[in-house]
């Protein structure tokens, strides 16, 4: 699956510039599902980028694990979910030295959460490299109850926490790693437009 091209949007919406090798520096790499192919392409540009890399992969049903494992990363780890590898990822961020690079690839939910963790850990923004691949599902925070609903693919959608029907905004918080969902029928309770697939 090729890199996702998103349509132009507002200034808070993240843009994913694509991965380019920063050389054989210490690196943390984190990918989910189709994001694996971005790392495979990255290693294809410059095999040495893997020499000092700690690579964490969340397959989410995708078949790319064996090819990733064969890229020669210093450490390779497969995790069943972001939550499952969060402490490992945090430790890697905490131990990162000046000049360490972070490569994130895959869905917006993963890139958003992983970026938020990295910024909170003090990694400079220009050391974070991102590429979107795969599902355009979004991670949405309900502005009303503050609960986060993962993998939202339609607009509007039902908040998994409070049950309100929310429309999908492009407004994005890097601190939360989430887009904002706002009640779609606040002014006219019960009048809800038909749900549409979210487009890139």
């Amino acid at each position: 699956m090729p890199r996702t091209e998103f349509s132009p949007s507002i200034a808070s919406r993240p843009v994913y510039a694509g991965l380019t090798s920063q050389g054989a520096t210490p690196a943390i790499m984190l990918a989910d599902a189709e994001g694996a192919e971005a790392l495979i392409d990255l290693a294809g540009q410059d095999a040495s980028v893997m020499d000092r890399a700690h690579l964490i992969y969340i397959p989410a049903g995708a078949p790319h694990g064996p090819r990733l494992a064969a890229l020669g990363a210093r450490l390779y780890h497969e995790a069943p979910s972001f939550a499952a590898c969060l402490e490992r990822y945090r430790q890697a961020l905490a131990e990162a030295h000046m000049g360490s690079q972070l490569y994130l690839a895959g869905t917006e939910g993963l890139i958003g959460q992983a970026t938020a963790e990295a910024l909170a850990a003090g990694l400079p923004a220009d050391a974070i490299h991102t590429e979107h691949r795969g599902s355009v599902a979004r991670r949405m925070q309900c502005v009303h109850c503050k609960g986060v609903t993962e993998n939202v693919t339609t607009d509007p959608f039902i908040c998994a926490h409070c049950g309100l029907t929310l429309f999908v905004r492009d407004h994005f918080s890097r601190r939360l790693g989430a887009f904002q969902g706002v009640c779609v029928d606040a002014e006219t309770p019960g009048i809800v437009p038909p749900a549409q697939e979210i487009k890139p």
Partner: peptide, 17 residues
């Protein structure tokens, strides 16, 4: 607008909408 959502944003981000 929501402080809880916008806190930590830069000038262009919080004015994005």
């Amino acid at each position: 607008w929501s402080l809880d959502f916008d806190i930590g944003m830069n000038f262009f981000e919080w004015h994005a909408p």
